[in-house]
Design a protein around this nucleic acid. Sequence first.
DNA 1: ATACTCGTTCAAACTTTTCGAACGCCTGAA
DNA 2: TTCAGGCGTTCGAAAAGTTTGAACGAGTAT
Lengths: 306, 306
Amino acid sequence: MTTPLRLESLEALDAIDRHGSFAAAAAALYRVPSAISYTISQLENDLGVAVFDRSGHRAVLTPAGRLLLDEGRRILTATRELGAAARRVADNWEPELRIAVDGLIPPTDLWPAIAAFGAEHPAINVRLTEEVLGGTWEALIDDRVDLAVGVADPPAGAGVRRTAYADVAFAFCCAPHHPLAERTHAVSEDELRSHRAVVVADSARRLSPRDAGLLDGQPRLTVASMASKVAALEHGLGVGHVPRAWVAEALAAGRLVEPPLDRPREAAQTWLLWRSGAPGRALAWFIRRLGGDRDQPMPRASQMRS
Amino acid sequence: MTTPLRLESLEALDAIDRHGSFAAAAAALYRVPSAISYTISQLENDLGVAVFDRSGHRAVLTPAGRLLLDEGRRILTATRELGAAARRVADNWEPELRIAVDGLIPPTDLWPAIAAFGAEHPAINVRLTEEVLGGTWEALIDDRVDLAVGVADPPAGAGVRRTAYADVAFAFCCAPHHPLAERTHAVSEDELRSHRAVVVADSARRLSPRDAGLLDGQPRLTVASMASKVAALEHGLGVGHVPRAWVAEALAAGRLVEPPLDRPREAAQTWLLWRSGAPGRALAWFIRRLGGDRDQPMPRASQMRS
DNA sequence: ATACTCGTTCAAACTTTTCGAACGCCTGAA
DNA sequence: TTCAGGCGTTCGAAAAGTTTGAACGAGTAT
């Protein structure tokens, strides 16, 4: 139940190794050599283990001493880091900020912000997850993430705040060797229904999954992520709407083409969402960086579009 | 340079959380409540952070306090474990024992010994690697492992001790659909030369690789491990000698067959090897368990069979 | 109301750590 | 070889830090 080791002993051990002698360590720690001697013999007493071999003239580490030095340094580092982390928490900085990016947004969109944050606050971890449709919202309200980026039609819900994020424009794509690729006049909804659609599965675990604007009766290929959807489209496995940012390069390179559509899909307004209540400073940093200042409360359910 | 945290503070924090109140923690630590109060306020002073919220009647952890408690417990555990590990090292127990098993020996051969060791000494790590031919020896003399198991023809070398390990009998195998499978009369060396041999690559990184008793001019398929060799033989990719223990099951199940051979390969004597010098107690444990007491010095080079 | 528990504060008793001086040992230069 | 200088230990005295017990105010359960 009692700690058989004092941090000061490890600190002395570290200083001795770092400076080469008891005397030099004493100087470095603003203490007198006998105090270091005392601290080390106290360590040896606590442990019942010889840390230095004093048979020669200069004290030299025993194998056990070596282990204490090496592992002890890890403990010292962890301890200092813990102190610093506690101070950050008290200062309202989260130890880790968890962000979910919706499949609508290419994760690369966030890299500049994350890089900038990392440069400013190297000690705060950022955990990025990718979610789809309802999964993004669910991750937020289940407290699995602190910030949701790029949610298209946030359901009504108390306790969530939001600010506008990007407008996402869609491209209707298929592979160049797909039957629809040669079309010069617009494709009707009826005609579309006979071609397999590639859709991304809702990543919600708990809430009922939502459809992503699908025409009924259309055959589907369901994949797990937007990246897989793009790959499936490129391989000619079907057709589908994809955020333009995901496929700009593939369209330019000719790996995908855009058949004209009778009723093109409208751009979607997407949002930045976070739970209301006092946000931590890391969260505030990201909200400000990604969303600017246009924070607004979630509308009541009656005001939501379905 | 100075540690802004005392282990006793973390211990007090842990006791408070564990027992529910300052008073109960004091009792558990055989101290008086005011001493606990003192220790905690010292922690708060060191850190400049409130650990408990005293606005209510009972003190309750702040978020920073929660972090200190959770992470502090890890530090306490690591510290205690370090003390114990140092004591073991001083007592000549290695913190980790590294064992190389030669490809001749199925790794499962060692599991009973490793399981027994783990039960006796749960705190000592065992690292098992698999090597082939010269690689096993090399791992030992390069100090990448402490013990080599199942080496067939150890080269002469100072500074290595040995004791006999298993005799390994070989089976000459091929797949049932291989041309040699139907043979009823013995296969000559000449004839053998026209069939592809599956051989295991020597895992030595530095020393010149050794051949594994191969007939010159025979086409080869070289694989990385005995397990791959068995798999290759089962798929009919060639023929080869395999330690009987590796293929007993495949032979019984008919996935491999044994064509009769003109000159069957003799069983090989294998050895347990370790560097001479005072062995740690974990090493001694394994030597005793795997090799019994028949430890004998390595013969001089002139006495070695090539 | 009352009795109880909680956590804090304070001065006094106590324990631990640091200091400085003295010592013995070894190394390297003269 | 001697000798100067550095190393690490020991010891008593001084300083610093911790623990104690009593007193207190504040909340809770009866």
